[in-house]
Design a protein around this nucleic acid. Structure first.
Lengths: 195, 195, 195, 195
DNA sequence: CATGAATGAGCTTTCATTCAT
DNA sequence: CATGAATGAAAGCTCATTCAT
């Protein structure tokens, strides 16, 4: 995605840009802002990135790589499909707690329906697809009940998790991944209906 | 919110601006664009609105008023709390099907965590709060099981509904509110776990 | 060439920009400079012109329209072809004396061999073609001797006239169209060879 | 002009830069472009030249040295002044045929009337002055008729030659120095007037 | 009331040039 | 010696907004 391989010290500084994007949105964030927050001169940013969009793209890709790694690890772990799905939900919330700004930026981008098509694809790859496969596995191993549309269900799960995390961040200024996980996992596994 | 009460023919034309906001984001949409899609000259828009932000604000408020009305109507309808909540979920998806662009804009704004604080409050008022109240009612009337945090749960429900709708719109170019409703309602009421 | 018809007061002010282009070249002249020299704000220039190139284009077109008018008038005047050609040469030098900067800009552009193809075509239309036709007429009416290539000859005439004018302007800071005309006409009609 | 004497292999590669200057103009040509067409890294160019302007200056000086050498040789050759002048005109056209880009760049610069004053002076030294001297000689040896202003006449000759060459290059994509020479020499010696 | 015309304030991006290696 | 990396200082252009009619 980057033409030149990004030198490691720069990588860390550029990560600081998510805060700006999260607060002011992509178009509302000026390169000047990115330069200020990261401490990297504007011209240097342009030396390493093709433009503002590529910086955003790089940031989101970096986040999604982390999510994908975690998801992949958990998918391959032992346990029933439902147990592994629970673990994935909790992991996603941990990522949100660790990198809340990046997640906000990502959601904004999703809602704009894939400004950067690669990102839309990457979300599918990183979360939706593995979860959909897990749902199928779950029906096979008997841990998950009969649902009709795995793709749509995984989107619903993604929404429940993400918006819960976001809501905590916005409403309470912080995200307790454990507590939020209990709620979401509770809702998703047992449902609302009284037993 | 508007200084002058909007003349009715203008109101309808301005609604057309959501498409632009949905596609290009708030900052990415120029007043010129709004003027073009609505057919209302730029200067005339400034005669009726205070600025670009106020147009967005007016558009979202219009959507949220509709959602709130629907929710309020359904909250007061007969049936168990769970049944009414199901109806609300389905209603929200119908709104998304009817006004997909406005919903996309709204979600983008939420993720930017309340660019316009009034909007964040309005979402709470229109959806989260009534749903949270319904959850409490549900525990009282025995239709909804024991959940710990009504506020967080209603956020999770909002996320599940919204992202499912969005996913359908993006992935399948259209949203069948009935089918999507079945999936979300199924997930939310019975949960994933096999009986 | 211009989208909006240029208001007359603006037209005169924009003419002042040729001085800047003549002194610093096209690329060396910043829009800021044009704004300063003309007294028209940058944004206003962009409101009326598509960009810097279009301003140059408009300026050169304006000059060439004048040249073309003069040439056309003289071509149709009475006298032998040679007499009329002499008149055209002298007229061209008068235009250079009147609008030296525009002529310098035009010549720079020619050497860049039609950065703006329309301009290259317009020079042909305004000068080269009428002169070439006059050469043919001259052979017919017996006033002009047997030359082989009218197109090339008219280019040579254009060069002799233009560079002489330019040389006077640069070397003597001013152009006496009468004196310069005598020299060029003398050279072009009788040639260098002693009788 | 150069601080360090240019290593011979570099000299040849830098010559390739004229193509870029000819096509895009001085300001329109980026050092990056020069680096690309010459294959010499930007920083290396800066190691050998003081800046972009010095590269242009060096290129034009190189051309003018060649022209001056040729002219000097021909001025000193046997024959009447008119014959030697004819030879110079033809030689200049041969140079244009051999190095068309450099000539285009030179002419662009002339019209900008001595962006680099040394260049304006060098043209005088290389062409105008020797030709003016030849005109005087020609009047003395009886081969050239009575003209009033040798300086202005040499400028006119320069213009006729140069623009004819340029016209051929632009209009016909190539310059046949022999044919073009016949036309220009015919015009300059015998004039247009029918005998 | 409504609007075409005008503009101040910035925006992204570019580029000549420097410098550490 | 030569050069990849880095950057200060613009440059061209855009856009939300105002205003005269």
């Amino acid at each position: 995605m980057t033409l030149r391989p990004l030198p490691s010290p720069l990588r860390e500084r550029v990560e600081l840009a998510v805060a700006a994007f999260a607060e002011k949105g992509f178009e509302g964030t000026r390169m000047e802002d990115v330069a200020e927050v990261t401490g990297v001169p504007k011209a240097t940013l342009y030396y390493h990135f093709q433009g503002k969009e590529q910086i955003l793209s790089w940031l989101l890709a970096s986040l999604l790589r982390d999510v994908a790694d975690e998801v992949q690890r958990l998918v391959a772990s032992p346990g029933t499909a439902l147990e592994r799905l629970e673990a994935i939900v909790r992991a996603q919330l941990r990522v949100m707690a660790a990198r809340p700004d990046a997640c906000r930026v990502l959601l904004a981008d999703v809602s704009r329906a894939g400004r950067i098509p690669e990102i839309a694809a990457a979300i599918g790859e990183a979360f939706l697809l593995p979860v959909a496969r897990l749902l199928a596995e779950g029906r096979a191993d008997g841990s998950i009940g009969g649902l009709v549309d795995d793709e749509a269900t995984s989107a619903a799960i993604y929404g429940a998790v993400t918006v819960t995390g976001l809501h905590h961040l916005v409403a309470h200024q912080e995200l307790d991944a454990g507590r939020a996980g209990d709620i979401v996992v509770g809702l998703l596994t047992r449902g609302l209906r009284a037993p």
